[in-house]
Nucleic acid binder design. Structure first.
Lengths: 249, 249
DNA sequence: CTTGACCTTGTCGCGACGTCAACGTTTCTA
DNA sequence: TAGAAACGTTGACGTCGCGACAAGGTCAAG
């Protein structure tokens, strides 16, 4: 039997057979005068056993182990592990499919797929052309993707803010500061109102640590032009003050 | 933000971020004076979107496509394909687990895992020390692994033979011919009895073509010493004759 | 000053083959 | 009988998403 014949007989490709030779899984058979490999039925039986084992899902290394000590003991052991592994994969795929189903059910977003919690929040927020609001959405999406488990609670706590029409006015006032200078008189009152607008529930679930500890706060500030940056800086300071007051009380 | 910070923020490794730069998925940010990469919030947002997409199960190429035309249209399309793919994988894993369960329930075999049909056949065959019987089992296992869909029918048709105690005697007579010469007088009667022993049902489901067409018949013959080979050759001839007779009638 | 934690570029490794190159052999067909 | 098609041979690179390592440079703290 030549390599193509044994491969077709067992149901693999010639390349696969040669690969098994290369890694020593299947012994090299005798050669004919022309250099062609010459296979016997015993080779086919062995190759068939290998194929059965790989079809089940064993790696070639595992197949080698199983074939090495040909008692059924090791086989049962490996098969047990394999089943556990497959069960894990099955659960994982099932979970991902559920995430997918949620994504497909939700309206498409220009920010890519979002967690259900954040999607619910943004859906209730009115559409606006405010650049500052868009920036905020990006920052929320970042928090969402950061895998922070507190994210869902934060989003839920922000719901009333999203539905509050007064917030739109605050965003517009922030937008107006885009090209302003850092000593603009509108900065202080806006910051104060923003700090006041954040409900206690959000502070309660927000991570208490200094945001600049991770560098995130600093970089977040760099994301704004000077006057807006000053507003955000004051808001962060003000919120930190409220958190300290909460903890001290 | 330096690379370690953005990576920790989004929840990937620095190596992953560099990999995305390398393949052009994430643009290289500006450098600090010391050569360190300097990331902005926009980079983090983009990286977070990439991470969300890969977590769902998209390949990096697919992520690139989705990010390229940033409408939600393409995303929904890719997600649909992905869900179909995951559904396929889920079915496949489930099927393999069922095969595994059947294998673990069956008694361990020295020939490796077998299809349920063949396992049932061999379980009903009496244990014997006959080398010829062992060889037959190997050939059946080969047929089993060859993925021949007719295999199950053949195995079912062979059940009466496996339970027939008279077959044991035939195997023993074949064993006795191991070192015999091709002109041994015991060859002809044994071959005749073997041909007669094969029930019509087996012939009916057996592939009608010449077995040597695939080279399998020839190699199968080479698997036996001369006298036994002569017996098998005559049996194959005799069976072929019966098939022709059946077709001619 | 040293130590340790970060950063840089570049390379190899993984798993199970697919695919191509460049060539020789066999077999079918005109 | 010639030529084409279909086999066979060895060898090497590509896949996918990084992990791990080498061999350094940079920076903050003890």
């Amino acid at each position: 039997m030549r390599i193509g014949e044994i491969a077709a007989l067992v149901g693999v490709t010639s390349r696969t057979v040669r690969h098994y030779h290369h890694i020593g899984l299947l012994p090299e058979p005798a050669r004919q005068a022309n250099g062609y490999r010459s296979y016997t039925v015993r080779d086919a039986v062995l190759l068939a056993r290998i194929r059965r084992l790989t079809e089940i899902g064993l790696s070639l290394d595992e197949v080698r182990d199983v074939l090495a000590d040909d008692a059924g003991r090791e086989l049962a052991e490996v098969l047990g592990e394999l089943d556990a592994d497959l069960a894990r994969q099955e659960r994982e795929i099932h979970g991902r499919r559920q995430v997918l189903a949620a994504l497909l059910a939700a309206p498409p977003s220009s920010d890519g797929p979002l967690s259900p919690a954040l999607a619910a929040l943004l859906e209730h927020a009115p559409a606006t052309g405010s650049p500052a609001a868009a920036k905020d959405r990006e920052h929320l999406a970042l928090l969402d993707a950061a895998g922070d488990e507190a994210g869902a609670a934060v989003f839920a706590a922000l719901r009333p803010l999203a539905e509050d029409p007064a917030v739109l006015g605050l965003y517009e006032r922030l937008d107006e500061l885009e090209g302003a200078r850092v000593d603009d008189p509108r900065i202080a009152p806006l910051a104060a109102e923003l700090v006041a607008a954040v409900p206690d529930e959000v502070l309660a679930v927000f991570p208490a640590g200094e945001p600049s500890a991770t560098g995130f706060g600093r970089v977040l500030l760099d994301d704004y032009p000077p006057a807006q940056r000053e507003v955000v800086r004051r808001v962060m300071e003000g919120l930190a003050g409220r958190v300290r007051g909460r903890e001290g009380a």
